[in-house]
Lab assay of single mutants.
Amino acid sequence: MGFKLLSKLLVYLTASIMAIASPLAFSVDSSGEYPTVSEIPVGEVRLYQIADGVWSHIATQSFDGAVYPSNGLIVRDGDELLLIDTAWGAKNTAALLAEIEKQIGLPVTRAVSTHFHDDRVGGVDVLRAAGVATYASPSTRRLAEVEGNEIPTHSLEGLSSSGDAVRFGPVELFYPGAAHSTDNLIVYVPSASVLYGGCAIYELSRTSAGNVADADLAEWPTSIERIQQHYPEAQFVIPGHGLPGGLDLLKHTTNVVKAHTNRSVVE
């Protein structure tokens, strides 16, 4: 069995187990497998329904001669939608809004960016022009300005110390501490036991640490421990890039980060 097929099978099995364990909360999309990078042309966006009122959005972007996937989250909030992270750029984010209108038909009224990198804030200006209120932590807003990236308009308070959590509509926002970046936030959907790890969490097929220019490698494993301790009931975990899975993604990420750190020390 090929690795790609095995990865998709694991996603399907995880979703099936969740649907059985929580039949009222989960209505997993039966329309197909989780979209992969090879299936999404740059400039297009796919939506994948995880649970009743919960979707991931998947886009792709060219970077350094390669094409990478990027995940975000959409959560229903009454007759409105909360968006977590842009679709990595203005063109993708405009396509995301169009796809949401086509498939869901509810307005996106608020959006949260989970850290300051372009795959999370690139497209904020498109959201703002569409009347979406954009939010991020003060740290993310400051770092985005320093980096020359787009800056969300509103500040999220109460997320300055490791372990801080605040309720934001249908989700809980959690600051686990520094990891992929010093400002990275985690998003949890309690009604569906869905954990969105953003770039602080890796997919299972990833074996290298990737972009760690703004990471705190020493603190990252401790931050992941905080996530595990705060959300032990999480059933569906979405990484910032690639295929979702279960809580095993947290341990896998820790292993990859520690291996990278150990290699760096040896070198």
Rank of each mutant, 00 (worst) to 15 (best):
E80T: 12
W220D: 02
L73D: 00
S56Q: 04
S264P: 15
S62K: 14
N184K: 01
T134R: 01
V37F: 06
G242D: 02
A218W: 08
L13A: 10
I40G: 07
P107T: 13
V67C: 13
K91S: 06
A59E: 11
E39Y: 15
L6C: 13
P244W: 06
N149G: 13
E225K: 03
R141Q: 06
S62P: 07
G242Y: 01
N255H: 03
L24S: 08
D77K: 05
S16E: 07
R226C: 11
D119W: 00
Y188N: 05
G240A: 05
V256P: 01
Y175P: 00
A259H: 10
Q49H: 07
L143K: 15
H252D: 09
S113N: 15
Y34I: 14
A21H: 02
L247N: 15
G105P: 12
S223K: 01
F174I: 14
G89P: 02
A144W: 08
A25E: 08
G32K: 14
T182K: 05
R142G: 11
A192W: 09
R76I: 08
V45D: 06
F3D: 12
T14N: 06
I20Y: 11
Y175Q: 03
E150R: 10
G131W: 08
D85C: 00
W55E: 01
V124T: 04
E33A: 09
G169S: 03
V257L: 05
T109C: 04
V45H: 03
V189P: 00
E99R: 15
V42S: 07
I104M: 02
D183P: 00
E101Y: 07
R141I: 14
T140I: 11
A200T: 05
A19K: 15
L97H: 02
G163R: 08
W220F: 15
P176D: 00
L127V: 05
L10T: 13
Q49I: 02
A15Q: 15
G123Q: 00
G53A: 11
G240R: 01
G148T: 14
F26Q: 12
R120Y: 01
H241V: 01
T14D: 11
A133K: 15
A111S: 11
S27L: 13
D216A: 09
Q103S: 13
L9N: 10
T254Y: 06
T222K: 11
V108Q: 01
Y231H: 07
G240N: 02
G122N: 15
